[in-house]
Structure formats: C-alpha cells, structure tokens
C-alpha cells in the first residue's frame, strides 16, 4: 500500500533549483532508502516530507506530496499535526540539553498525549524499549541526555521520534556519525521499527541501503534517476548512471 506519494515536486533555494520534478511513491511499512552522491538533493527531498524546509527562509517547495490522501503542501495543512505523524531523526545526534526523561516526554507533552504522570512514564518506557535503549538507561533517566555515547544518543533521538507514535519516520543519514557497532544496532532497530512505521532513510553507504531497505531511490543532480525494489536497483539497474554509482565508478 502506498503511504506517501510525491508528484511533480520541485524545490528551489532562492533562484537555484535543487530538485527537478520528483515523482516517488513510498510503500507503507517498508524501508525506503534514498541514495546518491553528496548534494544530489536526497536530504532536501526528505525534508519536504515533514515540511522541515519551511524553516529555511529562501527555500520554496512546489508540487504535491500526498500523505493519507492529503496534500501536505496545501495551505490548510497543520504543520504541527503533520510533524506529529511524521517523525525525523537527524544526521548528528541532537538530544536536547535536558534529562533523558524530558527528552522523550518532550513530544508527548507538546501534543498533550499523556493525561497523568503515570501515562507519561509509560510512554517514556515504551519508547525507550522500542529504541532498544531501556536496559542501558533505565537507572539514569534523570541524567542529562548529552552524557550518553554517540550511538546511545542517536537511539535516544529515535526513541524521542517514536514517542509520539508517528506513522512515518524520516532518517537523514542516521549512522554517519557513528561507529560500526552502533551502526549495526541502529540498523537492527530500523528492521524492527518497520513493523509499525514506514521508514525513509537517506544514506551514503550503499551497503547500508542494501542491508536495511526494501526499496531504493537513486538521486543524481536533483533528479530521481531510478527507483524500485532494492534488489533490482543493486543487481540489475535500468539506468547506466545508477549502475555506475552502485559499482563505485563515481560519487
């Protein structure tokens, strides 16, 4: 089933066009990987999906992005609700300078999801368990989140993202700042999370895309060159550019 459908999406930074006519469907409860060389627009596309490009003054997005039969680029779209439904994990772990507990409870509290302290405790525990971090931090929930290791911080950010039970999780190179062991833990986690969430991951590592994703889209110079099942893209791509990139001839 199609969860997100992007139609004719163009993005401009000032006068410079960053994305050209992107058409891409994202399947529900699957992991979609976006690959491509640096500056190809894959992160820009990802940020279109929860309207994070609004934060950048000079950025303009055109075209339709339909999620649950609703075009999020419509004027009537409530960005707060949209971002509640579509969570995001960033390249560099960015825990708030608060305690672990407050980091997780941040989302639920601004969306008024917990009526009592007890409910909040529950949400925090479930989110941390889902992010496979509970066992490591359950005794120090009231210590600052910035005191964790890089991999733990990133899992904390994932826990923070899933605390509001989003339908979609966007991940922007979530492992690029992490060591191989932490990376393996996150990849395992992604595999687990796709049961309940639709995941879109931007990655520089082809191996990671091949390991975690079911579908892959290849971006180059602001255009979506090719997309489809990961197996097909990696073993038998239609486009020679994709072939070249995957075999490491450029990028």
């Amino acid at each position: 089933m199609i969860k997100i459908s992007a139609k004719n999406v163009d993005v401009f930074y000032g006068k410079k066009q960053a994305l050209f006519n992107i058409n891409l469907d994202i399947e529900e409860n699957q992991v979609t990987a976006l690959i491509g060389p640096s500056g190809c627009g894959k992160s820009t596309f990802l940020r279109c999906l929860n309207r994070m490009n609004d934060v950048i003054d000079i950025c303009k997005v055109q075209g339709e992005i339909v999620i649950n039969d609703f075009n999020i680029n419509d004027k009537g779209c409530d960005v707060v609700r949209l971002r509640e439904k579509i969570g995001m994990v960033f390249q560099k772990p960015n825990p708030f300078p608060k305690t672990l507990y407050e980091n997780i409870s941040y989302g639920p509290s601004i969306h008024g999801m917990a009526q009592s302290k007890q409910e909040m405790d529950e949400i925090v525990e479930i989110s941390l368990k889902k992010a496979a971090l509970w066992e490591e931090v359950k005794d120090r929930l009231h210590e600052p989140g910035t005191g964790l290791s890089g991999g733990q911080q990133q899992r904390l950010c994932i826990a923070r993202a899933i605390s509001v039970q989003p339908e979609v999780i966007l991940m922007d190179e979530p492992c690029s700042a992490l060591d191989p062991i932490a990376t393996a833990q996150i990849e395992e986690l992604i595999d687990e999370l796709k049961k309940e969430h639709t995941i879109i991951i931007v990655t520089h590592s082809m191996a990671q895309a091949a390991r975690v994703s079911q579908r892959t889209g290849f971006f180059h110079l602001g255009e979506l060159i090719e997309h489809g099942l990961t197996d097909k893209i990696f073993k038998n791509p239609d486009n020679t550019k994709t072939q070249d990139y995957i075999t490491g001839r450029f990028g």
Binding site: V80, F90, N94, F96, P97, Y106, I110, A161
Partner: peptide
C-alpha cells in the same frame, strides 16, 4: 540542530524557544 530536533517533533516556534532554546 536543536531547533530542527524540536521543530521535527511538531513544536511551534514559541514552544521551541521556551522549552529548548531558552534552557
């Protein structure tokens, strides 16, 4: 990155300032 993190959680500008940036 802290602002981004907060906006991505669906926080508004004033919430972000009050709860993340100001602390």
């Amino acid at each position: 990155s802290l602002r981004d993190g907060s906006y991505a959680m669906g926080a508004t500008k004033s919430e972000t300032i009050k709860k993340v940036i100001f602390p």
